[in-house]
Lab assay of single mutants.
Amino acid sequence: MLDDRARMEAAKKEKVEQILAEFQLQEEDLKKVMRRMQKEMDRGLRLETHEEASVKMLPTYVRSTPEGSEVGDFLSLDLGGTNFRVMLVKVGEGEEGQWSVKTKHQMYSIPEDAMTGTAEMLFDYISECISDFLDKHQMKHKKLPLGFTFSFPVRHEDIDKGILLNWTKGFKASGAEGNNVVGLLRDAIKRRGDFEMDVVAMVNDTVATMISCYYEDHQCEVGMIVGTGCNACYMEEMQNVELVEGDEGRMCVNTEWGAFGDSGELDEFLLEYDRLVDESSANPGQQLYEKLIGGKYMGELVRLVLLRLVDENLLFHGEASEQLRTRGAFETRFVSQVESDTGDRKQIYNILSTLGLRPSTTDCDIVRRACESVSTRAAHMCSAGLAGVINRMRESRSEDVMRITVGVDGSVYKLHPSFKERFHASVRRLTPSCEITFIESEEGSGRGAALVSAVACKKACMLGQ
């Protein structure tokens, strides 16, 4: 009897593995994704193909990295998701002549009506938060230079001027797309009239992360975010950046690689679950690469896999709870928690219980395998993109072996128990001629924006502006 049951459990697990095998990517698959990513990057950089390229390769006008001589107080704003952060950054000489960066910050959550109302409502709310922060720190009387981390696709015309191309991540505030974001912020500050600010720089969160990590390690020339969304930036040779005049030196390019796949480059790798996630998203047909990796989508992918296993009578005796059938019910943090389970399955059992399920031991094991399959594919897909960037940098610099540091931020990278190990191992397999160091950014977005502002202020002083 026991043997029969054991055989049935083994057969069930084997069927589960057959279904989950769809998520496995072979090294040849990853090399294919990497080569296609490089081709799209090239198209994004070139003037004649930029418009139709899915990977936009947006110039950021960040050319210099901090040298350690900029000092002063800077205000930093960070808008990239449902939370908005205001930070005071003091850049100065530390002990023994070292450079020191001290920060104080406060988080504000953005109400739904500000995210989806008008641009005026959104930026009025942001300036209200700045006003509140300055009151708390008794700094209303000071006109501070301000660095703005704005983590949406922007076409820069200068370091302090950028046109919002399109909202992502659930934002829909009308009247912002096609307009200068810094102008919208300046107008809102003017409307309030109770404080003055000098907006000197606007950067993407990947750029802010790279600059913040450069402060720790001067070989950091790539910034990457794996959180709600997924994106990367890197220092490109100016001669390859056709959208900006000049051939000397390097400029940081914001790849906006989340949109890779929007022209069909990933079609052969998309599964039924991916198509369902895409169809029910706020932007169907867009940001397809990001939807395979980002935390906004990972939990939902797992939920759809679990429903398939229920329908195949391989999980929960073929019956799903009402909660499990509800879109968004299986949160991405559950994926991390399930994979963090120590082996007694308590954590998995508790999560499934909150979803109205009474799982068996085998159910718990199957749910864990589903989570591992989805998150491992995410790590491997992400590795193909980064390997594409790094191999490109090595080739354009004609280096036999390139040493490089990548600064990384984002909740999936930082909080998932195995993502970074799987990701690092896969990147290294795909970049055999590179020695890569990964560092995690601390308060990256805010500190990085302030350091970019410090560079901009120093330049302005040198130019006598």
Rank of each mutant, 00 (worst) to 15 (best):
S445T: 15
F123Q: 00
S383V: 01
I293M: 14
I110E: 01
S340M: 11
Q323S: 07
E395G: 08
A208R: 04
P432Q: 05
R428H: 09
F171W: 10
T362D: 12
M393Q: 02
A370G: 04
V253H: 01
Q347N: 11
Y108L: 00
K39S: 10
P153L: 05
P432A: 12
L77A: 15
S360C: 12
K90V: 10
G44K: 01
D409E: 11
E442L: 08
G44T: 00
S441M: 11
C230M: 13
Y61C: 12
D217K: 03
T332F: 13
R358L: 03
T342K: 12
M298R: 02
E300I: 00
P432H: 10
Q138S: 10
I390N: 02
E421K: 09
P66E: 06
I126H: 01
S396V: 14
Q347H: 06
P153V: 08
T437D: 14
S212Q: 06
G147P: 03
S418M: 08
H50T: 08
I126T: 04
M8D: 15
Q337Y: 08
E442Q: 05
Y234C: 11
E95P: 13
L88V: 10
C461W: 13
E256N: 07
A208H: 08
G147K: 01
L415E: 08
V181Q: 02
P59W: 05
K414T: 11
Q219I: 08
T228D: 09
K136T: 06
G117D: 14
F195D: 12
G318F: 08
E237A: 06
D267P: 01
K15W: 08
A188R: 03
G162W: 04
S131F: 06
A10K: 10
A320H: 14
V71L: 07
T168Q: 09
V207A: 05
A460C: 14
Y273L: 05
E279A: 08
H50Q: 14
F260A: 01
E196S: 14
S373H: 07
G81P: 15
M381V: 08
R429C: 15
L185G: 01
L2S: 14
E9K: 15
V226W: 15
F152N: 15
A378V: 06
T255E: 02
E440R: 06
A11D: 15
V338E: 00
G227R: 03
V62N: 02
R429W: 06
E265T: 09
A21I: 00
R308I: 03
Y61I: 13
K190P: 05
I366F: 08
D29I: 00
D247F: 05
A387Y: 00
R422M: 09
K458S: 10
D158K: 09
G261I: 01
S76T: 05
M298Y: 01
L352Q: 00
I293S: 12
G193L: 05
V91H: 08
V401F: 10
S321P: 12
L430W: 03
A208W: 14
R369F: 07
M115K: 06
I348V: 10
M202N: 08
F419S: 00
F419K: 01
M298E: 01
M402F: 13
E339V: 05
D187H: 06
R447M: 12
D132H: 07
L47S: 10
M34Y: 10
S131W: 06
Y108W: 13
A370L: 10
K102L: 06
G318K: 07
Y234R: 02
L47K: 14
L415S: 09
D262T: 14
N166E: 13
G294P: 04
V71T: 09
G97E: 05
M381I: 09
A450P: 06
I130E: 01
S398F: 09
I130P: 00
I130N: 00
R345K: 12
K458E: 05
H137F: 06
G385F: 04
T437C: 14
F423E: 00
V374A: 09
V207T: 10
S396F: 09
G183W: 06
V406N: 00
A378C: 13
R63N: 12
S360W: 04
E372M: 15
Y214N: 03
Q26I: 10
K169I: 07
T206I: 04
S54Y: 01
A119S: 09
G246K: 03
Y215A: 05
M238V: 05
N204P: 07
R358S: 12
F260T: 00
P66Q: 03
A10S: 15
V302I: 15
R186N: 03
E22F: 02
K90M: 06
A259V: 07
D274W: 01
E339M: 04
F316K: 00
M298G: 01
M210S: 01
R308S: 05
S76Y: 09
D274L: 00
L352H: 00
Q287A: 12
I225A: 06
E51W: 09
C457A: 13
M462K: 15
L77S: 05
E216K: 10
N83Q: 08
M298S: 03
T206W: 02
Y214T: 05
V226T: 02
N350F: 02
V101C: 08
S445I: 15
L58R: 08
A6F: 10
F148C: 13
R392I: 03
N179F: 14
R303A: 02
Q287E: 04
E27S: 03
C213T: 05
S321L: 14
S411P: 13
R422V: 15
S441C: 10
G444W: 12
G264N: 05
K102M: 06
E372R: 07
F419V: 01
L324N: 01
L20K: 00
L463N: 08
G264H: 13
V226L: 09
E372W: 12
L292N: 03
Q24F: 07
G92H: 06
P145R: 06
E28M: 14
R7N: 15
L415C: 14
R429S: 14
N254K: 11
Y413N: 03
Q239G: 09
G227M: 03
M235V: 07
C434H: 01
K169W: 13
T65N: 14
S336V: 11
V181D: 12
E312I: 07
V401C: 10
K346V: 05
E120H: 05
R429P: 07
D29M: 02
A176L: 13
E51Y: 02
M8P: 05
Q465A: 11
F133T: 04
G162R: 10
K13M: 06
G464K: 04
S281W: 01
Y108N: 10
I211H: 02
R7C: 12
F269S: 02
G299L: 00
E399L: 09
G229Q: 14
G72S: 02
V367A: 14
T376L: 07
V427L: 11
M139P: 05
G388I: 02
V199Y: 10
V335I: 09
K420Y: 06
V55H: 00
G227W: 02
I126C: 08
V452D: 04
D113N: 14
E196F: 09
R155I: 12
R403S: 13
E272W: 03
V182N: 03
L134R: 04
T354H: 05
N204R: 07
L45Q: 01
L146T: 14
E395K: 15
T354L: 12
C129K: 11
